[in-house]
Design a protein around this nucleic acid. Structure first.
Length: 199
DNA sequence: CCCTGATTCGC
DNA sequence: GCGAATCAGG
């Protein structure tokens, strides 16, 4: 497919209407959203500024270069069958989580027999609302076992690690975080009403 | 995971 | 000029 005047017209119109590149591509057919975006840029209307006068040049000057002139990153674009992969490799999500964890680290779910149970993160020390939510979610939890956890399953521990009544939430995690929405909510609580247990 | 636009560069 | 691949963010 080529960019006939008619197609370009449709593109301009839709883009002007705020339609997404993928929507436009779908409408036009025979092109991908990349093609649409590429065309949009070439037409100089990337800014979403309706055709005509561009009152907002912007575009350039981002935060890429910053204040490090000495260390210019060339970022050679690997193309088709050429060049190697300068990619820094993906990170290992299963390990190392800087996120504030509940009282029970999932480092080692196994608990030596005869040990006092670690405080249940879902038990005390959290707001009533959050607690209620967690309780709710626990019902829906997938009850996954350690080996069943993936990068995108909630790793919130539920139950007694020393018994069979132990599993991980397993619900879909919230982008990035190690937990599902509900558990992120309680895990990232700004410690405050953390009333100390008299002890 | 889904999605979005932005950019680069071989073609 | 084109657009896939990639990057970057939601």
């Amino acid at each position: 497919m080529s960019w006939t005047e008619k197609r370009v017209e449709t593109l301009k119109t839709m883009w002007g209407e705020g339609k997404s590149a993928s929507q436009i591509a779908k409408e036009l057919g025979g092109v991908t959203r990349n093609a649409v975006i590429g065309k949009v840029h070439r037409l100089g209307l990337s800014n979403r500024a309706g055709a005509g006068g561009n009152a907002k040049p912007a575009a350039a000057a981002k935060e890429t270069a910053t204040a490090a002139p000495a260390k210019e990153a060339p970022r050679p674009r690997a193309a088709k069958g050429e060049a190697a992969k300068p990619q820094p490799a993906a990170a290992e999500p299963a390990e190392a989580e800087p996120a504030p964890k509940p009282a029970t680290p999932l480092r080692k779910p196994i608990v030596p027999a005869g040990q006092p149970l670690p405080p249940q993160p879902s038990a005390n020390e959290i707001s009533p609302e959050a607690l209620a939510t967690v309780r709710e979610v626990e019902k829906k939890s997938k009850k996954l076992h350690l080996m069943e956890l993936t990068e995108r399953t909630c790793k919130w521990p539920v139950g007694d690690p020393a018994t069979e009544d132990f599993w991980f939430c397993g619900l879909p995690v919230q982008s990035g975080k190690p937990y599902c929405e509900a558990h992120v909510g309680v895990a990232f609580q700004p410690m405050s009403s953390r009333r100390d247990r008299r002890r």
